[in-house]
Write a protein that binds this DNA or RNA. Structure first.
Lengths: 109, 109
DNA sequence: TGATTAGCATCACAATGTGACTCTAATCAT
DNA sequence: ATGATTAGAGTCACATTGTGATGCTAATCA
């Protein structure tokens, strides 16, 4: 199953869509979690997810900006979406009834 | 932050309340996830969570059953509940807007 | 031409997760 | 009373995942 950080990364990348590349994903993660995302965690996890087939990555052309280095673009594969969904579902399912879950009446699922 | 399995374990233990002990937690986890829970994962994770103060454990008296060995009882501490809540919230928050999340209208939070 | 900048890569290490195997003490059947 | 069976815990070496410090590259700017 996905680890927690792997899930974070896939979710961030999926949200960014076409604009998903290393540094942007990192910002996205830091924003949505409020915690630092280390470079090491970022790229090693990208590598691992790509190996597992949950992500696809490729290098873009360098952008014409000061320091505009080539970006490593990221796309979540269908398998990646599936894995994320299954992680999410697992958390939700397992959490049903837990005291810390806002119990909105007719809990569907 | 909590790992995924740590979260599972805390949730299962919390759900079992007074009846939370090693083997029962294991069954609970296997039931709610549909996956095997290895003994090693179980007890090493219990140890770690206890070290972190998220669980408290103690040995019960042996029960008068065939093979009724002393059980290692588990209680989730207030810190443990907090940690679980914070993990859950993080997953929910981060997942907002993800395509695999059933977007039920007024998403509270 | 060299300072600054955006961004990627790596490596050794820390934390987590896993399973095969073993141990214990209690009942049960002979 | 002795050995098979049972519920349950403990351990260890290993696999997987997460982290941060450090450095590299190529582009712009002054």
């Amino acid at each position: 199953m996905l680890g927690e950080f792997e899930y974070l990364l896939i979710t961030a990348a999926a949200g960014l869509g076409d604009k998903a590349y290393g540094a942007a994903i990192r910002e996205e993660i830091e924003e949505s979690t409020g915690r630092k995302c280390s470079i090491g965690a970022l790229y090693t996890t990208i590598d691992r997810l790509e190996t597992k087939g949950l992500l696809k990555t490729w290098m873009s052309d360098a952008t014409p900006q000061r320091g505009g280095r080539a970006k490593r673009m990221v796309r979540v594969t269908p398998e990646g979406v599936l894995a994320a969904k299954s992680f999410y579902d697992a958390v939700i399912r397992v959490s049903r009834g837990a005291s810390w879950v806002a119990n909105r009446n007719g809990s569907s699922l």
